[in-house]
Simulated assay, not measured.
Amino acid sequence: MKKIFLIVFGFTISVVEAQAGSENVSYSTENIFMRANRPTTKEYVIDGNPYTTGEKFNKVMIKGFSKDVQDLRYNAYEDEMEFKNGEELFYVNKGTNIKIQFPDLKKTYESLTYTYDGKSKSGYLVLLVDNPKFSLYKREKMELLKGEKSTNSYTKDANDYYAKETDLYLVAKDKKFSKFPKNVSEASGIFSIDKKELETFVKSNKINFNKEPDMIKLVEFVNK
């Protein structure tokens, strides 16, 4: 079984590329490449955090690799999986179609290159329904917003802060992605299913097109 060592300095690591004076250095272990990223330290304070999995590093499982891997967390602002070695943070290289399971969180992230809205995109998506017919994904994203300036001399300026963007739900078929439908009419076209049949299912199950559990239930229905 392959082992994945995310920059464990006790093992033999060969340098693939390095630039003098650069903070980004690429290393390789057996068959896995890791990017050693040290994010630039901010001189100002940012409120909140960019992690949709929480600040804690969690156990993960990656199919085809040893279970003895570093704990990870997802940085939704940078769209990167982070791990820690000593006091330094590093990013994991994004391998296409690599699935990273967080058992304790009951979440699976997949690193994908895909087409959406006529453009080629790449990054981590949360896998909600995995099916050859129709799959369902969720894109999580954090943005960094500017804090407000104080209007008087008695209060301090508000810090910049992380804010979670509205999750984007995507339906995938044949590697093409489309936004999850808003209603029965859109769903009928996207899923190529009879509108009356779909309408009956939606009404009898009280499907809400804006709620994740109902989205999952709907995709699982059209996959039958």
Rank of each mutant, 00 (worst) to 15 (best):
I98P: 08
N97Q: 15
Y124C: 04
K99H: 13
V60R: 04
F221R: 08
E88N: 10
K175A: 15
K59P: 06
F191H: 08
N152I: 02
L125Y: 00
N208L: 01
M142S: 02
S28F: 00
R139W: 02
S150N: 14
S192V: 14
P181V: 07
K217T: 05
I62F: 06
Q19E: 09
K2E: 15
D167P: 09
Y91K: 02
K106P: 06
V222Y: 02
F5P: 03
P132G: 12
S135I: 01
N37D: 11
I190K: 10
S26L: 13
E17F: 08
V92P: 00
G64S: 06
Q19K: 15
T40V: 14
F5I: 11
K206T: 02
E55R: 10
N58Y: 11
N183E: 05
F102H: 11
I4Y: 11
L112C: 00
A20L: 11
F191M: 09
N58P: 00
R38C: 09
V92K: 00
F191L: 09
E220W: 08
V92R: 02
K224S: 13
D160Y: 15
G48M: 02
M1S: 15
K138V: 09
T96V: 12
V15I: 14
A172F: 06
E82G: 07
D71F: 07
P132C: 14
T108D: 06
I193H: 05
P132Y: 12
Y137F: 13
G48C: 01
Y124T: 06
N31W: 09
N97Y: 13
K133G: 01
D194F: 14
E186P: 05
V16W: 08
D214M: 08
V202N: 03
T40E: 11
I100R: 07
Y116G: 05
Y169W: 09
M1T: 14
Y27M: 03
